[in-house]
């Protein structure tokens, strides 16, 4: 593991570690990395004592706004965020679900306007993780962890 990290170490940027392998591509999607022009390396199905299999993403010269990166707390709350300067970890961030979430999450109410017309979803977090509850700004119904669906950024 130590070796792998060294191989692909970045000088400056952000490292997202301890992402469950099954969520790796969703994390890439949520962060819009498919549209990024930064240098990105990622690995998946790496051995992890904590998760069994984990994924890791390293993005050079990129630092995220808290609200942007915190959105991945919805699907990978145990992920670790390291901010790198000059090959050193200068900051470790803990993920918390943002108070408001714009886009990304689909409202679970099939009769919600956001599921019928082109309306960006907007939620208020009324219960924090792990068993979070999100209140839809439009239909006022709750979308919970069990019913979470991520809207792809890939459109």
């Amino acid at each position: 593991m130590e070796k792998q990290l060294k191989v692909s170490a970045i000088k400056d940027g952000t490292v997202l570690d301890h992402i469950p392998s099954c969520q790796l591509f969703k994390v890439i999607d949520i962060l819009g990395l498919n549209k990024s022009s930064n240098q990105i390396t990622f690995g998946t199905n790496l051995d992890s004592k904590l998760l069994g299999k984990k994924g890791i993403i390293k993005i050079s010269d990129k630092y995220f706004e808290s609200d942007d990166i915190n959105r991945i707390a919805l699907i990978a709350p145990q992920a670790k965020i390291n901010i790198i300067h000059d090959f050193e970890v200068v900051e470790k961030r803990v993920l918390t679900i943002p108070k408001t979430i714009r886009g990304i999450v689909k409202c679970m109410n099939p009769m919600c306007i956001t599921n019928h017309q082109v309306v960006e979803t907007l939620f208020t977090t009324i219960v924090e993780s792990p068993d979070f509850k999100l209140l839809c700004h439009y239909c006022e119904k709750i979308t919970d962890k069990e019913n979470l669906k991520i809207i792809s950024n890939n459109r």
């Binding site: 919600c112 306007i113 956001t114 309306v119 700004h137 439009y138 239909c139 006022e140």
Partner: peptide, 27 residues
């Protein structure tokens, strides 16, 4: 309007006051 949340959405687009006279099963 028959869809939940439609009135809130309408109020965000409208330049004049909006009164919700029933949006689906919501309000």
């Amino acid at each position: 309007h028959p869809l939940d949340g439609s009135a809130r959405y309408a109020s965000e687009i409208s330049s004049v006051p909006v009164i919700n006279a029933g949006d689906g099963a919501n309000q």
